[in-house]
Design a protein around this nucleic acid. Structure first.
Lengths: 202, 202
DNA sequence: CCAACATATGGAGGGGCACCCCGTTTGTCA
DNA sequence: TGACAAACGGGGTGCCCCTCCATATGTTGG
């Protein structure tokens, strides 16, 4: 999207050409390596594959978290776009559920993503981070679902995303991660109790 | 409990006295260290605190997982006991929910426990491990709840525990981990949709 | 009581990783 | 084109996991 974050965050001064090139190389290498080894991929290996010194990697991305946020920026952005689109649905309840499932599947099948999305009281979604983006995008969906009476009022987006992310985290790496994630999220959304069937319990 | 696992697993030959002593010291040190630093506590630090060489630690516990399983054995056993007790409740549905909440709270407040309970299709609960123990204990509760019609038939214990464990994993370390875990588990159990009130929807 | 032997120990070493310092190189722009 | 800020990356530090093997120590049969 648009521009790599270094620029979007601080439009102060453009990166020098070589710095920009290295930045992009590191990001590409990180993407590949994280896909292979998950969120705990070796930073040195990433630097090696990018053909830069480890110091350069650390200069561009002071923390592992910063690197991961950037690596997943596009995917998260895509999820946000999907949320905006679903927000126009005429079945807000179903729209929310569809989106949550999509988030779960993305998280479960994209190694490392879930770990970089830790959120909650103790992990305040850092203003511009991936967590905050999803929180914003989903908030609208949740509001609509609640207005439509499809979701309880006391439910918060942060709890929903935390739950979905927890599922992603746990299923990540499994052979059929997507299936599992969808099943667990559906379980959580529907609850464990039997639905009172229209005709009344048998 | 009863006996440290080395004996219960292979009654073949008793450990030599010094070996047994070191085994216990390592376990005690691990308990303290894992409580401080979570599941990724430094094994060398544990050995240091136990006053043994790192080789000794690795000989007694070939993998980190093996050590964690032993560290949490007692707590997991306690949860299983609680499950057995709850299995006599005259409200099987509530009994199951109570137990799941207890598991979540234990997991969220006991650093490292959740990580050592990873289970699911890809992480087959190793026969004698903590996962299998909980699965067994909870199975009875689930069966009763289902027989009482309080829980849907298609729900599996492994999914329930995976979900609960996911919550523990994500909330672990938060300031109010227990509250958060209970809230999220409750959310998952009740589902996000409004309960159809007896009087009918407004 | 004491050898002799299986059992157990731990220091040292190999390989890896994260992170940082600082002398050197390289864009950039007046 | 020259001078200067910006960026680079080799190499060092400290930590970690894990294994090898020379040494020490309980155990037990005579």
């Amino acid at each position: 999207m648009a521009d790599t974050a270094a620029a979007s965050a601080a439009p102060a001064r453009p990166l020098r050409a070589d710095a920009r090139r290295n930045y992009d190389r590191i990001l590409a290498a990180a993407e590949a390596e994280v896909a292979r080894s998950g969120a705990s991929a070796s930073l040195e290996e990433i630097a090696r594959q990018a053909g830069v010194g480890s110091a350069t990697l650390h200069r561009h991305f002071p923390t592992r978290q910063a690197l991961l946020e950037e690596v997943f920026h596009d995917r998260v952005e895509a999820l946000c776009a999907q949320a905006r689109e679903l927000a126009t649905s005429d079945d807000p309840g179903e729209a929310l559920v569809t989106w949550l499932r999509a988030v779960a599947v993305y998280g479960a099948t994209t190694r490392g993503l879930a770990a970089s999305l830790r959120m909650g009281p103790a992990h305040p979604p850092s203003g511009t981070g991936c967590g905050a983006m999803l929180l914003d995008a989903g908030g609208e969906l949740l509001r609509r679902a609640q207005d439509a009476g499809a979701v309880r009022r006391e439910t918060s987006m942060i709890d929903l995303l935390t739950l979905v992310n927890a599922v992603s985290l746990v299923t990540e790496g499994d052979a059929d991660a997507a299936d599992e994630a969808v099943r667990l999220v559906s379980l959580a959304i529907d609850g464990v109790r039997p639905l009172p069937v229209p005709g009344g319990p048998a």
